[in-house]
């Protein structure tokens, strides 16, 4: 076990835990944001640089500070480490710089983007970005790519987090999806515009933190904050069958995997559940999905089932005697 101090809060975690996961154990406002790190995917992290933190004391044995800011998602803790995140102006300044870099070539087409409302980049720029831009140059653009009948790739919006690459690599059999080119010309591709033909290919949509990979069966159908998410499950021979249905009235508009508070998929789901089961009768409904209050989706979203308060029991017996005789509205 290693004991570290993160933003002045002490926490004890097993050896080998990353700084980010130690911070997540504390939870709340001190947790650094993460755009590329994804717990279920091996090898992810270290790329987007928004989780940079300052290590002011390396360990109890070697108390020297680390010379540079480190990516908290890939740096393991040492016993006695002291880390600053929100307390360090240097970290906040660097993070602001990274967010600016992520946005300079982003098209900022949120008004027509399906991801709007549940976009990690949107949340990140609200929290750490600036309202204006210093970028006067022409933005880098790519042609829109079709990768099969179910998934749309919008490379302009991509921040190259490599999550979908690791997903395609690790949970599907064939390697058909990777990064082509380098520098700011690097792009996600399925050499060349191949269809991702695989039972679990749809998961690349869920892991994408931005609107680069979207669900073609949901494209332009609705804004995500108008839909009502409910937890549901079905008996699926391929996957756990535990999903979230995004409904409008009684129409199932979209099916996704369940995500935890850090936007990470809990259990990956198969394409049949995601793309084909779009009837309420296909599913057993569990109840409303919990949505964080900070999210725009939580507007007009009531989670708790409406329970009639127990007034009746407290009334005098005489008033309840013939209650059952009164006709009830159905």
């Amino acid at each position: 076990m290693a004991k570290i101090t993160f933003d002045g809060i002490e926490v004890e975690v097993p050896d080998g835990t990353t700084i980010l996961n130690a911070a997540r154990k504390i939870g709340g406002k001190v947790v650094p944001p993460a755009m590329c790190y994804y717990t279920p995917l091996k090898g992810s992290g270290g790329k987007c640089r928004v989780c940079l933190v300052k290590v002011t004391q390396g360990s109890a044995k070697d108390p020297r500070p680390m010379p540079k800011l480190v990516a908290s998602c890939v740096t393991p803790v040492q016993d006695g480490m002291v880390v600053e995140n929100t307390l360090s102006p240097q970290v906040l300044e660097a993070r602001k710089g990274v967010v600016e870099m992520l946005l300079i070539n982003h098209p900022l087409d949120c008004p027509v983007c399906d991801q709007a409302g549940e976009c990690d980049l949107q949340n990140l720029s609200y929290e750490h970005g600036t309202s204006g831009t210093r970028y006067e140059e022409e933005r880098r653009t790519f042609d829109r790519q079709d990768i099969g009948p179910l998934i749309q790739l919008h490379m302009n919006r991509c921040i190259l987090c490599y999550r979908c690459v690791y997903t395609a690599d690790q949970i599907t059999d064939k390697r058909v999806h990777g990064v082509l080119g380098r520098g700011d010309a690097a792009e996600i591709g399925t050499y060349i515009e191949n269809v991702i033909d695989n039972d679990f290919s749809g998961n690349v949509i869920d892991v994408c933190p931005v609107g680069a990979l979207t669900d073609k069966t949901f494209r332009f159908k609705n804004r995500v904050w108008f839909t009502k998410p409910v937890d549901a499950h079905r008996d699926c021979p391929k996957c756990s069958g535990k999903v979230v249905l995004w409904n409008r009235g009684s129409d199932v508009l979209r099916v996704t995997a369940r995500k935890n508070e850090y936007g990470e998929v809990v259990e990956f789901i198969c394409n049949e559940c995601r793309f084909e089961k779009k009837e309420m009768s296909d599913w057993t409904i569990e109840g409303p999905r919990h949505i964080a209050r900070a999210s725009v989706i939580s507007a007009n979203h009531y989670e708790l089932p409406v329970v009639n308060p127990q007034i009746i029991a407290d009334l005098p017996e005489s008033t309840t005697k013939e209650l059952h005789l009164i006709p009830r509205p159905i």
Partner: peptide, 25 residues
């Protein structure tokens, strides 16, 4: 450096291109 950046991490991927464009101007 813009041409040779690998494009893996965001400050270098975006920043080298930005610097080149400013210097070009």
């Amino acid at each position: 450096y813009h041409h040779e950046s690998c494009g893996q991490c965001s400050p270098c991927r975006e920043g080298t291109g930005w610097m080149e464009k400013i210097l070009h101007r």
